[in-house]
Every structure is written in C-alpha cells, then in structure tokens.
Computed example of a mutant assay.
Amino acid sequence: MPVVHTGELLREAMAGGVGLAAFNVINLEHGEAIVEAAEEIGLPAVLQVSENCVKFHRGQVRPLLAGLAAMAEASHARVSLHLDHIEEFQFLEQAVGTGVSSAMFDASKLAIAENIAATRRAVSFARTQGWHLEAELGEVGGKDGAHAPGVRTDPAEAAAFIESTGVDSLAVAVGSSHAMTAQTALLDHDLIRRIRAVVDVPLVLHGSSGVPSTELALAIEAGMTKINIGTMLNIAFTEGVREALRPMELVDPRKYLAPARTRTARVVREALKTISSPRTGKS
C-alpha cells in the first residue's frame, strides 16, 4: 500500500474520537515490528524518525526513510512517515521526496517570539511540500521536571501560537516526560480539555511511554489525538537482545535481532489497541 499522509490519519482519528499511535524508529527492525503489528491489528500507525536518530545514522536521513517507505509499500497496513523533534532545518530539506508527509519542528527551547518565527519558517517550507507541520509549546518534561511551575502549556498561549504560526498540530506539555522507563506519569486531563476547547488542531502527547494505559485513554477522551511512543519500544527491544545473548557463544546478529523485533511488535500491538481502538475513550 502506498505510504499514507499523516494529515489524513489525524483527521480520521479526530473524527472517530480515537488516538493515532506514532512510534519512534531507530533501526529497520523497529520499523518491521511496527508495520507487522499494524498489519496484524488492522490499525494505522505513524513511523517517526527523530533528529537524534538521524544523527545516530551519521546525519543521513534518507537511507532509513527509504527502507521504511519500502516496508510500508510492501504491506497492507496504513502507515505514514514523520520526522520528529527536528531542530535543524537541514533535516527537513533532506527528507524531501522520501515519502515523509509530516514533521515536528521543535523550537520550544527558544523564547516564545523566536519559537514563533522559527516555526513560521518551518510551516512555510512544509506548505511547499504538502506536509503536515507539528510544533511544540511548553516543555515536555521541562528542565526542572514535568510538574515544575511554568513548564506546562497555557491554553491562551496555545491558541495564539497556532494563529501566529499556522501549525497543523501542536505538541503540548500536560504532565508527561521523555525517556521514562516506568509508567508512573499522571496527566492533567483538565488542562487537556481547556486546551482542546480553544484550539481546533490535533493535540500531540510526547513522552507517552511513561503514561499508564488508563491515563492515555482518559487523555484521548479529553482531547488528545496523536500519541508518541519511543522508550517503551526500546525497553522491549533491549530485553529481547539481552535474553538472546545469554548464551555467550552467540555471534550471529540475526539470532538476537529477531527476538528483539518480536518483543517490540508485541508492545506495539498492545499500544495500538490502547490508543487507536474505537472503544478507547468511550468507557
């Protein structure tokens, strides 16, 4: 199946009152696990490549995206390609013609005026490519923690930011934090509802690996749409590698990458059920 446009998947999720699961990819085995699970469950998924991942692959965005696009096209799963947390404009330019249909341009570390200016430039570029552009307002996790004063997204600022930049979706800080290895984060569902009430674009939750399933369901019910997951996959992948490598004589990478891929696919299947199932947020 041809790679699907992320904007199409987001519109469908919002109309159906469900979430759209977006998974961060580091290697081809990650991608294979996500596509396999999406195909098996029959639910859409977003394959995300972050700037950190691009830098891990020696600053080259196109090789990994080419492999992911080929996987999507060989599958009957509905999959889109997305760039995540891009801070350097060059990586947006590198991805032209790769099948990418959306990007998250992250200028959230800048002062608000600079964030707006940088985001406007990214939106303008995205429009020339027909891409959906996501931005961030607030600090996901924050420099002093997810619950520190002043790091969460203000609803009025969110509405003004969208109007000033023209972004298509907005990542908001509502209590989650990146790189959490335990599912202990509690979200501010009232804040999500207040942001949802004043903005009309899809809201994005980063750092979702640290959020319990029940909290995710409540967040989607409150108005969150795109749910980003990365660390959860890395935990499963690493556990699979560790278990396979217990026999010290093992040297063939396929012997430990295969079980790692299998464990990752299992986690993706469960995440898809929690986030994108039609029953989510309706209990």
Score class of each variant (00 low, 15 high):
Glu29Cys: 11
Ala126Met: 09
Leu81Ala: 13
Lys55Ile: 15
Ser80Gly: 09
Val46Ala: 14
Ser101Tyr: 10
Ala22Lys: 03
Phe56Ser: 11
His76Asn: 14
Glu12Cys: 14
Ala113Arg: 12
Ala21Lys: 06
Val96Gly: 02
Val49Met: 14
Glu51Tyr: 04
Ser75Cys: 07
Ala69Met: 01
Ala21Arg: 05
Arg120Cys: 15
Phe89Lys: 15
Gly141Ile: 04
Glu8Tyr: 05
Ala103Arg: 00
Gly141Thr: 13
Leu43His: 06
Thr6Trp: 00
Glu40Ala: 07
Gly150Asn: 13
Val123Tyr: 02
Lys109Glu: 12
Asn24Ser: 04
Leu20Phe: 10
Trp131Phe: 11
Val35Gln: 06
Gly150Ser: 15
His76Cys: 13
Ser124Asp: 11
Arg127Ser: 05
Ala77Met: 05
Asp106Phe: 09
Lys55Asp: 05
Pro44Cys: 10
Leu20Ala: 07
Thr6Ile: 00
Ala95Arg: 14
His85Cys: 07
Leu28Val: 14
Ala15His: 03
Arg121Tyr: 07
Arg11Val: 01
Val49Leu: 15
Leu83Pro: 01
Ala74Asn: 07
Gly17Pro: 00
Lys109His: 08
Gly31Val: 03
Leu137Glu: 07
Thr98Ile: 04
Arg78Ile: 05
Gly42Asn: 09
Ala72Ile: 12
Glu87Gly: 13
Leu81Ser: 14
